[in-house]
Simulated scan of single mutants.
Amino acid sequence: MDGAWWTDAPCAGDLRFAPPEAEQAAAFLRSPLARQLLATCQDCPFRSACISRVLPRKSGFDGICGGRLWIDGQVQAECADADPGELAEHGSYIPHGTESGARAHNRRGEPACAWCREAGRRAQADRRARRRAARPDPSSPTH
């Protein structure tokens, strides 16, 4: 393992583990493909860490996390060797995709996820634009 654990997890980069649209998520998560994806978690050594990072109960998560299939923060199915001891949610919920989410990642001492990084970048660009707009125009005459 060379980076953060989530880059080494068997699901790394597979967006099917957390469908973005709520309407699509419930139907997808009840499909046979979701059960196949759940098998990816079977031998994953990061299941407990995954739950602590996503906080599926606190966040009302829809997707596959920590060897379990979650709908609205409730376990609907789990991989064969799921251990109840993995379900502890440590830490506080991060509102992903927001500037406050980026700050929450920073407080945890971890790199921000792509959604939070982008939200932080947009918020910083908005602040810069407001500051530029608030400055007096040096080319206009003053009275």
Rank of each mutant, 00 (worst) to 15 (best):
D2Y: 05
G3S: 07
A4P: 03
G13T: 05
G13W: 09
D14Q: 08
L15E: 13
P20D: 13
P20E: 14
A22V: 15
E23M: 14
E23A: 15
A25I: 07
A25R: 12
A27F: 13
L29K: 11
P32E: 05
A39M: 04
A39L: 05
T40L: 10
P45M: 01
R47V: 01
S48F: 01
I51L: 14
I51A: 05
S52Q: 14
R53T: 06
L55K: 13
P56H: 08
R57I: 08
K58R: 14
S59A: 15
G60M: 11
G67I: 02
G67P: 03
L69V: 06
L69T: 09
W70I: 04
D72A: 15
G73V: 06
G73D: 09
A77F: 03
C79Q: 11
A80T: 07
A82C: 02
E86W: 15
A88H: 06
A88W: 03
S92D: 12
S92K: 05
Y93E: 07
I94E: 03
T98Y: 12
T98I: 11
G101D: 06
R103M: 06
A104D: 07
H105W: 15
R107S: 03
G109L: 01
E110K: 10
A112H: 03
W115N: 09
R117L: 14
R117E: 12
A119H: 08
R121A: 13
R122T: 11
R122S: 08
Q124D: 11
A125I: 03
A125T: 05
R127C: 02
R130L: 14
R131V: 04
R132K: 15
A134P: 11
R135G: 06
P138N: 06
S139E: 12
S139T: 13
P141H: 03
P141N: 03
P141F: 04
H143V: 12
